[in-house]
């Protein structure tokens, strides 16, 4: 028996070697297309950006001389950049805090009445979410036309006068925040609603019979169970907020007086309008590092707090 088996194995060896070579080739051939996409469209541009951020670039974006950290220094030397950072920070904090708290409130409201009767409500809530941001921005622009827009008409009807909402730096940034909340709060509410619905009905009922004030249920059970989902939603909201560019482009072009100039819009202008490719590359690198660190950290926190039902 064993001799036959050995002979057979010996005879089959070259064949098997050829087969495994073929399999090896096939494996790598199959990996090649997606790998190529990643290399060409992600890895290579990242590398070039990183590389360029340390070089002096001409207006066509070609490296002409090594610049060390000069691009970074130039970036931070600009007072406009400081204002942009401040705008972005104010905008992001307001937008994320408002958006996540409103989304949480919405999810609790929706959880209370998930019956078919809330279909209309769901459609109304989620229409902003499915709309492209650029379209939403244009609709808001229309709402906010001084005197004739819907917002001013309503204000006048209520006897509150009128306001050129996009005409002042403070109110314009506030409008951006409201737009973000309007568009994303229902979307994030959906995630939180899923989190709430994952809690078994028995647990809700047990809480109802055991908790006279409701506070302990929320603080000790509901919130901890939802915490990973809240962390996820908050991370996503921060990423979306920092990356906001289309409403700025459509509504204010960063104005008035750079009051709505957010970092992504600034980055766009830096490259495509001022042709300052070097500082633009430096800013890209900084954003990349900042946002990756943020999402990496929140992933780690998420995993550590990960909550398992079973």
């Amino acid at each position: 028996m064993s001799t036959t088996a050995t002979t057979l194995t010996a005879a089959a060896a070259p064949l098997r070697a050829r087969r495994s070579l073929l399999a090896w080739c096939l494996r790598y051939a199959l990996v090649l297309p997606p790998a190529a996409v990643v290399v060409i469209f992600v890895a290579w541009p990242l590398w070039v950006t990183l590389y360029h951020s340390f070089f002096q670039l001409d207006a066509r974006g070609h490296a002409v001389a090594f610049a060390g950290s000069k691009n970074y220094q130039a970036l931070f030397a600009s007072p406009l950049f400081h204002q942009v950072l401040w705008n972005t920070a104010v905008y992001s904090v307001l937008a994320v805090v408002l958006c996540v708290s409103i989304a949480f409130g919405l999810s609790l409201l929706l959880y209370g009445r998930v019956a078919a009767s809330s279909r209309a409500l769901l459609v109304a809530l989620f229409s902003p979410t499915v709309m492209p941001m650029i379209a939403a921005a244009n609709i808001w622009l229309y709402f906010l036309i001084p005197q004739f827009g819907m917002v001013d008409q309503l204000l006048r009807w209520a006897g509150l006068g009128h306001e050129n909402w996009l005409g002042h730096p403070g109110t314009a940034l506030l409008v951006m925040v409201m737009l973000f909340v309007w568009k994303y709060a229902p979307y994030f509410a959906l995630f939180l609603l899923a989190g709430l619905q994952a809690i078994p009905p028995d647990v809700w009922e047990a809480l109802r019979t055991e908790d006279p004030y409701g506070w302990a249920s929320f603080r000790r059970v509901i919130l901890p169970i939802l915490r990973p989902m809240l962390a996820f939603v908050t991370t996503m909201a921060v990423l979306y907020a920092v990356e906001t560019v289309d409403p700025v482009f459509a509504m204010t072009q960063g104005g008035p007086n750079n009051g709505t100039n957010l970092v992504m819009f600034y980055l766009y202008n830096l490259g495509f309008n001022y042709y300052s490719w070097g500082p633009a590359a430096a800013l890209s690198v900084l954003l990349m590092i900042g946002l990756s660190t943020l999402s990496g950290l929140s992933l780690i926190v998420l995993e550590r707090r990960a909550f398992h039902w079973q």
């Binding site: 028995d202 009922e205 908790d211 000790r220 059970v221 169970i225």
Partner: peptide, 24 residues
């Protein structure tokens, strides 16, 4: 009430589960 599926609070330890009605 004692439920068929026990309705334990999954994020709390046994101690905290038993303590929950008192804490609440």
């Amino acid at each position: 009430m004692v439920f068929q599926s026990y309705a334990l609070y999954p994020n709390l330890s046994v101690f905290e589960n038993i303590a929950f009605p008192l804490r609440a």
